[in-house]
């Protein structure tokens, strides 16, 4: 067992212990704190696997963002504290049985899969890691569209969260609002709000996607030539059976394969 594995196990078991505690304690705020620790443990695991940028993002996004959000959520909905965060014992036993069976199955599958630890270049990969600029090129290059779609998703999330959690007027029923003559104007303004936000955002996204297309093609065109001229896909049809799609500028699958190939040192 290599030193990396030993350290992975050590950090992993700590992370797992924190996660289990987060799922087990009765006090929800304590649970959140344990959950935060578990996320930090994951961040350490990321770092150990050479993903230092991701480790940072993990701490920033999760520990800084998600956990704080959840604490807000807990504070906003504070009630029935005496009941505790977890359900009755028989439920917990059932849940434990189900999750243990699932775990056993997963472990069995993992242990029966051959060749997990004998991949070529594993050790060198671990030390080298993925540099930040490689990640940046990948995100804005081959995955540009996904990246932009993600930004749209975040926007939609934002709008959705606002609409869902918006406090209604005191007199308003919680269900669907009847449209009376007197509040027809207000309705229209409210109804207009989301398109007013969404439409420019969508337009901006489309524009961004359109601009990203050009570099994508550039990267695609450059990648095999600059970094790995020897392993051109045209010369290895066995590895790339779909080589006729290389010229399609928005073919994500081809782009993924291409970048994966191009990134090999």
């Amino acid at each position: 067992m290599s030193s990396l594995e030993i350290s992975l196990y050590a950090v992993g078991s700590l992370t797992l212990a924190c996660g289990l505690l987060a799922m087990g304690v009765r006090n929800l705020v304590h649970a959140l704190l344990w959950f935060g620790l578990s996320l930090m443990g994951t961040a350490v695991l990321f770092a150990q696997l050479g993903a230092s940028f991701l480790a940072g993002m993990q701490i920033l996004l999760y520990v800084g963002g998600v956990v704080m959000l959840l604490i807000f959520g807990v504070m906003l909905t504070r009630e029935h504290e005496h009941l505790g965060a977890v359900r009755e014992v028989n439920h917990r036993i059932r849940a434990a049985v189900v999750s243990l069976v699932l775990f056993a199955a997963l472990v069995m599958a993992i242990l029966h899969t051959p060749g997990l630890d004998q991949a070529p270049g594993l050790a060198s990969q671990a030390t080298a890691g993925v540099t930040l600029d490689q990640l940046a090129v990948a995100l804005l290059g081959p995955y540009g569209i996904a990246f932009e779609v993600l930004s749209l998703l975040l926007l939609a999330t934002m709008v959705g969260a606002i609409v869902l959690a918006r406090k209604r007027d005191p007199g308003e029923p919680t269900g669907r609002k009847p449209i009376g003559r007197q509040n027809l104007g207000k309705q229209r303004i409210e109804g207009l709000a989301s398109p007013i936000i969404a439409l420019p955002a969508a337009a901006a996204s489309v524009a961004a996607i359109a601009t990203v297309q050009a570099p994508t093609v550039a990267v695609q065109a450059q990648a095999p030539q600059t970094t790995e001229p020897a392993v051109s896909e045209h010369e290895s049809p066995a590895e790339q059976p779909t080589d006729d799609t290389t010229d399609a500028p928005v073919d994500v699958a081809a782009a993924v394969a291409l970048s994966a190939q191009g990134d090999q040192p």
Partner: peptide, 13 residues
């Protein structure tokens, strides 16, 4: 859901 997933995984294993 998870019970079924576990059973399927067990069966596959």
């Amino acid at each position: 859901v998870f019970g079924a997933a576990a059973l399927i995984a067990l069966w596959g294993g």
